[in-house]
Design a binder for these strands. Structure first.
Lengths: 113, 113
DNA sequence: GCGCTATTTCCAAAATAATGGAAATAGCTT
DNA sequence: AAGCTATTTCCATTATTTTGGAAATAGCGC
């Protein structure tokens, strides 16, 4: 993880449509959601949805797997975890007093570049 | 905190220059950094830096306070904490299995809309 | 292979973001 | 108030993002 990747992932999530897509997928849990189901919930033209999904997939935040003629989308939790880890570490890097105790507990110890 | 605010904050951080600015301010700690010092470190024209700073300030991620003729910038930790809290909650909302144990410990219990 | 459903890719238009020089503003100091 | 330093705002340009209709592709069942 580094500034370039982190900023691109943040940018991918930094759009209301995409953040909603991502949240919807997280809430769908392990089962995931087909693009079509997502499209119903998001009420958005297919091509627009597809562009947004591509962005999330390119940044590793979403994964698709084919089931017959549909594509099932899954939130890629590990990517979010790495991103959160990066932010927590960046945020608390030197002072250690920027987050309340509960969050400080999870500060990572590895060095971040 | 809601999707609109969260996505705008994520977008603000989702640019390599701004994420670097933010990180630099975090690392500067409580003392903060004057815009001019930040400009030296970032090696960027003043107007460009000022545009980026404005964006971070507008989203509540950075605060400025005047000290004579310079403006000292500070990372606004509480905003980052709220954003991280939102992401952790969104990410673990229904399944609770998307993050490793260390991070799961800090899941918030309040409802998120 | 044909028809069908699901989804992406192609293409273009409109909107927004990024960049930076030059001029304006803010606050010192004399 | 003049001169100085620090920073923002104005303005314009270029680059990127967002959006979506229409055409293309993928997989299935007959």
């Amino acid at each position: 993880m580094n500034i370039e990747i982190a900023s691109r992932q943040l940018e991918a999530l930094g759009n209301p449509s995409r953040l909603t897509i991502y949240r919807t997928l997280v809430r769908a849990g392990r089962a995931g959601l087909a693009v079509g189901q997502l499209q119903e919930r998001m009420d958005m033209p297919g091509s627009t949805l597809s562009h947004h999904l591509k962005r999330l997939i390119d940044m590793g935040l979403v994964r698709q797997e084919r089931a017959g003629t549909s594509l099932i989308c899954h939130a890629e939790y590990s990517a979010m975890d790495a991103l959160l880890g990066f932010l927590v570490n960046e945020c608390c890097a030197d002072e250690g007093n920027c987050l309340p105790p509960a969050v400080k507990m999870v500060r990572r110890t590895e060095t971040v570049t």
